[in-house]
């Protein structure tokens, strides 16, 4: 058996008396689209934050392609191939979409570029950023103000910025949150197009999206994984119905 791309073992995080992450194991083979679902407050975003490194875990290990990354700072994990999007978009309102994606491209290129160069004139970075925007369908809005974008466009922009990091593993924290149904369909289409090319862990409440996209699903309740399996397994799992889909009324 080959090494999984992401291999999380025994991950724990406590906040005082609250166990937010309770010995979580999670292994994602390369190319898998794995959905993480669970009721509000189950600790899904907390888990993502630990994987990407913005929150330090108490114990356990996080391996990316066999190498322990659990104690690296965020930016180093990003350089190893981890990218994320946020549940509540963290974009910079006064930037343009092009600037935003250029920032990601230039971070990936690191310090091999002139630090004090005129950022906007750098053809190579600019072209690459534009390519990512076009790919996600935001090319026409490249020079708008991010603060003026619609919610759906912002979510797309975050995805474009994350893709500009050329990640091997993409962590998506509620990519459909706040989207209308047409926008959701568009996002599902885009994620489906990426499926297989990039390994993805997706936290999502939109069950239609989860059931359409996911190869496998893990269910997190009170920081613990209570079930894991294919979409059909999860749909028919009694524990999941009780804990998550609503006390027996499904």
């Amino acid at each position: 058996m080959t090494t999984p791309l992401l291999d999380v073992q025994g991950l724990c995080k406590r906040f005082g008396g609250l166990t937010a992450t309770d010995t979580v194991d999670l292994a994602l083979p390369e190319g898998e689209l794995h959905a993480l679902i669970g009721p509000n407050g189950a600790g899904k975003t907390t888990l993502i934050n630990q994987l990407v490194g913005s929150l330090e875990h108490d114990s356990g290990s996080i391996r990316l392609d066999g190498a322990e990354i659990g104690h690296l700072p965020v930016w180093q994990r990003v350089h190893r191939g981890l990218a994320r999007t946020f549940q509540i978009t963290q974009l910079l309102p006064d930037f343009t979409p092009l600037d935003t994606v250029m920032l990601a491209v230039q971070a990936r290129h690191g310090h091999s570029f002139r630090f004090f160069g005129n950022a906007r004139n750098d053809r190579k970075i600019r072209d690459e950023a534009m390519q990512h925007l076009d790919q996600i369908g935001l090319g026409a809005r490249a020079n708008a103000r991010v603060g003026d974008l619609a919610q759906g466009e912002r979510k797309q922009l975050e995805l474009a910025a994350a893709l500009a990091e050329k990640p091997r593993l993409l962590l998506l924290d509620e990519p459909m949150a706040g989207l209308g149904s047409a926008e959701s369909q568009q996002m599902i289409g885009q994620l489906a197009a990426l499926k297989g090319k990039i390994t993805m862990l997706i936290v999502e409440h939109d069950m239609e999206a989860v059931f359409t996209l996911a190869d496998r699903v893990s269910v997190l309740v009170y920081g613990k994984i209570i079930a894991r399996g294919s979409v059909d397994d999860i749909k028919s799992n009694e524990d999941v119905k009780v804990a998550y889909l609503g006390e027996g009324d499904v």
Binding site: V52, V74, W75, V78, Q90
Partner: peptide, 9 residues
């Protein structure tokens, strides 16, 4: 948070 997530040192 965003800048960190973009991979900036």
């Amino acid at each position: 948070e965003m800048v960190r997530a973009l991979g900036v040192d």
